Each structure stands twice: as structure tokens, then as C-alpha cells.
Measured scan of single mutants.
Amino acid sequence: ETFPLDVLVNTAAEDLPRGVDPSRKENFLSDEDFKAVFGMTRSAFANLPLWKQQNLKKEKGLF
């Protein structure tokens, strides 16, 4: 299941849709939104070091 970017960005855990893991908001973006937000594919993002993934998520309001 995916959700629009505005539902996930800068949203407190208690305000997220049911079933969304607040530590993994990026997994609930569509592939198109994911690429638009991070400028890379999911596989490229997954290959980044964890610290870099976290920094990007913070920068984009998805942490």
C-alpha cells in the first residue's frame, strides 16, 4: 500500500495512516514519488550506508 507524499512528510507517528511504520515511511511512497523525493531508485537508496539513508530521510521530512 502506498500513500501520497503529503500524508507522510513531517507527520508524527500517531497521525500516520494505520499500518505505516514511522521508521520506514519511505517504503510507503509510490515508486514515482520515491524517485522524485530522493532522486534515485529504491535499490540505489538501499545500497547507501545507513547513516546516509537516515540523513536523506531527515532532509526530506521522512524521518
Rank of each mutant, 00 (worst) to 15 (best):
E1H: 13
T2L: 08
T2K: 11
T2W: 13
F3S: 03
F3D: 04
P4Y: 04
P4K: 03
L5G: 03
L5S: 04
L5F: 10
D6Y: 11
D6G: 09
D6K: 10
V7Q: 10
L8I: 06
V9N: 07
V9F: 06
N10E: 07
T11H: 08
T11F: 08
A12T: 08
A13F: 11
A13G: 08
A13N: 15
A13Y: 11
E14Q: 13
E14W: 02
E14L: 07
L16K: 03
L16S: 05
P17W: 03
R18W: 09
R18M: 14
G19E: 11
G19D: 07
G19L: 07
V20N: 05
V20Y: 05
D21M: 04
D21F: 04
D21E: 06
D21G: 02
P22H: 07
P22Q: 07
P22W: 02
P22Y: 02
S23G: 12
R24I: 07
R24Q: 11
K25Y: 05
K25Q: 06
K25R: 15
K25P: 08
E26G: 02
E26K: 02
N27C: 13
N27D: 15
N27R: 11
N27L: 13
F28Y: 15
L29G: 01
L29F: 03
S30V: 02
D31V: 06
D31L: 06
E32C: 07
D33Y: 03
K35Q: 14
K35I: 14
G39N: 14
G39S: 08
G39I: 01
T41G: 08
R42Y: 05
S43A: 14
S43C: 13
A44K: 09
A44V: 11
A44D: 12
F45T: 00
F45D: 00
F45C: 00
F45R: 00
F45S: 00
A46I: 10
A46S: 13
A46R: 12
A46E: 11
A46H: 11
L48V: 01
P49E: 07
W51P: 07
W51H: 10
W51Y: 10
K52Y: 12
Q53P: 00
Q53H: 00
Q53I: 02
Q54V: 15
Q54M: 14
N55W: 12
K57S: 02
K57N: 02
K57R: 09
K58N: 07
K58Y: 10
E59M: 11
E59W: 07
K60T: 08
K60R: 08
K60V: 13
K60P: 01
K60Q: 07
G61Y: 03
L62F: 11
L62K: 02
L62R: 02
F63V: 12
F63D: 15
